[in-house]
Nucleic acid binder design. Sequence first.
DNA 1: GCAAAAGTGTTACCACTACACCCATGC
DNA 2: GCATGGGTGTAGTGGTAACACTTTTGC
Lengths: 226, 226
Amino acid sequence: MAKLERSVLAVDVVLFRVDDGELAVLLHRRAQEPFADAWSLPGVAVRSAETLESAARRALLEKGGLHEASIPQLHLEQLYTFDALYRDPRGRTVSVAHIGLVPLDDAARSAGAWRPVAAVERGSLPFDHGQILETGVNRLRGKLRYTNIAARLLPDTFRIDELQAVYEAVLGRDINRANFRNKLLRIGLIEQAGVKAEAVGRRGGRPPHLYRFTSEGVEAEERDFV
Amino acid sequence: MAKLERSVLAVDVVLFRVDDGELAVLLHRRAQEPFADAWSLPGVAVRSAETLESAARRALLEKGGLHEASIPQLHLEQLYTFDALYRDPRGRTVSVAHIGLVPLDDAARSAGAWRPVAAVERGSLPFDHGQILETGVNRLRGKLRYTNIAARLLPDTFRIDELQAVYEAVLGRDINRANFRNKLLRIGLIEQAGVKAEAVGRRGGRPPHLYRFTSEGVEAEERDFV
DNA sequence: GCAAAAGTGTTACCACTACACCCATGC
DNA sequence: GCATGGGTGTAGTGGTAACACTTTTGC
């Protein structure tokens, strides 16, 4: 069994994006033992002079394979602190897991090893990373319902069908198009950005308006959105 | 400024109970510097061979002044991990804050230094404990809305007016008696425990039934209760 | 009987669901 | 014109809020 004399504090990051209607997560191929060559969540040990968030961004830089420029803008938030005594065979390691979100249009979407969440076998991940991923997905689903966190998965302005695709990818179910639209506008979560989107890559049909999230934070909203 | 060479992992606990219609928190009078004699949240450094939850219970035992017998039964859950670089003047200390709940009838209610949450001046608490307390209150309020966490603030069977008092104390607002009752029974959160309560300490009026929380976990409920 | 507190029912309103239909554009 | 997708309105349904009313006890 692992030795427990010294404790290490680490961070692991569950970085999400929505890709072509699917929720995807960034994985990292481990170079060293233990679990060499296995796909894991990117993570690093926390240095004594950096915050957890800094460490999480460093994990994405050093282990994530993302473009460096896109990392400072990413939305990052704490997920949960995992502390099982023997979760790491090298010794006691407490890991503060984080969730990160990449916007649809970010260049980071083309870099790194993205895998559809539905295709990741939880048991195949090393350490307790399967549990961390599961916790992350559940948290993201929950926050989508009562916060405006979807804004961090989209560009500043977007079409409503893109927004709906994000909700459907994360929640894993279909949503009625008309009601989705009516509700989000009625409660003031989003508003028209005025201009009409150019018809890039579209196959005809009425051109959509662009929308943005309203500035008022909806963090403390009391009701479900969807 | 503090030195950052070595990192310490700690836990702090926000222990709640409802006392006479008021939400109360357990405080601890610090014996040593820094902040000697100040009232703070109970907390300890995590040992390398114990889990965070064990450390949190140990904090309640060593710093909380509770009866030892009531500590193993307490509901405990992680709140958030606080990591500001200079939150502790002695050096880098990352603290995994926890929420704890004591049932109404527990003997622990008579032990320790309980203070009404509304009366605790956040700025008077040492370190970032004011922020931790605020985060804890908000989390408790949130979970009351969509989980059965109120069960951990009550005995196994209870009267509906006691349950309502818990909700009102935590949420900080009045609730309509008839609708509260109808809804919680309709959605199956609680059920009759069959017997009628004895009229101990009551001043007349129809004797109330006793109720219990239904066994089905309501953790993942999608809708607000209140 | 009267007060007090538990328990039940009623009504108006509002939000959600499902669905039909209209609008604006490409071809 | 026709297909395609964006945008709007409506009827039915069900939950919520406010409140009145009934029931069961103590005195």
